[in-house]
């Protein structure tokens, strides 16, 4: 039990997917200009990542490893994720329109979000058990949402300041992200 807790903490803070592992940078910079979009994207990632983590783990263990075709991992994972995202989108649109209104526009972006694919691959590479894979997927997604929302908060403030023209937008965004990453580095050595 304590092992799983340690795993969750290390995935959220120490190995934070955005600030330490550098996965999912496109949405990190793309959807962090406003707080609302950051929250929407964060929630959508939590939702999809947990499902993708579970499904790809099952596919890998019971299909790829069982049939000894591990070299098809990249192809099958990306197909699983792409169809999962499509399916979730259709399902939400029909069944839970309120949630779709909030997350809908972010869902297509998630297919090419390497955070999702990255975590699925990490789960396999680290040889996690099923339970560990579920916890890790969830914790990484929470870390993603946390970093994204923190970043959006800071970025909204930065926009109010007078930033020199060449430094505006992405450039100052990256420097800001660097400073946030610096604060996350202080979690190192905690586990």
């Amino acid at each position: 039990m304590s092992d799983l807790f340690v795993l969750a903490i290390s995935c959220i803070f120490i190995n934070n997917i955005l600030l330490a592992q550098f996965l999912g940078q496109c949405p990190f910079l793309g959807t962090s200009k406003k707080m609302e979009t950051a929250v929407g994207m964060g929630m959508a990632v939590i939702f999809v990542l947990v499902m993708a983590g579970i499904i790809t783990w099952i596919v890998d263990v019971y299909l790829l490893k069982a049939l000894n075709v591990e070299y098809l991992r990249t192809v099958s994972f990306i197909l699983v994720i792409a169809s999962l995202v499509q399916f979730v989108e259709m399902f939400l649109k029909k069944s839970i329109p309120a949630l779709y209104a909030g997350l809908g526009i972010f869902l297509p972006l998630i297919t090419t979000n390497c955070a999702v694919m990255g975590v699925c691959l990490i789960n396999i590479k680290e040889e996690y058990s099923f339970l560990q894979a579920v916890i890790a997927s969830f914790a990484y997604a929470v870390g993603f949402a946390l970093a994204l929302i923190l970043f959006a908060g800071v970025r909204e403030r930065v926009d109010l300041g007078r930033v020199p023209k060449p430094l505006q937008d992405t450039s100052i965004g990256l420097v800001t992200a660097g400073i946030i990453a610096l604060t996350f580095m202080s979690f190192k050595g905690m586990v």
């Binding site: 600030l19 060449p166 450039s171 990256l174 420097v175 660097g178 996350f184 580095m185």
Partner: peptide, 19 residues
């Protein structure tokens, strides 16, 4: 070489390119 250095390094290079 650490994570923050990557962000800051790329941010400053973008800034130079924008100049």
């Amino acid at each position: 070489l650490e994570a923050p250095g990557a962000f800051v390094g790329l941010g400053l290079m973008l800034f130079l390119m924008n100049l």
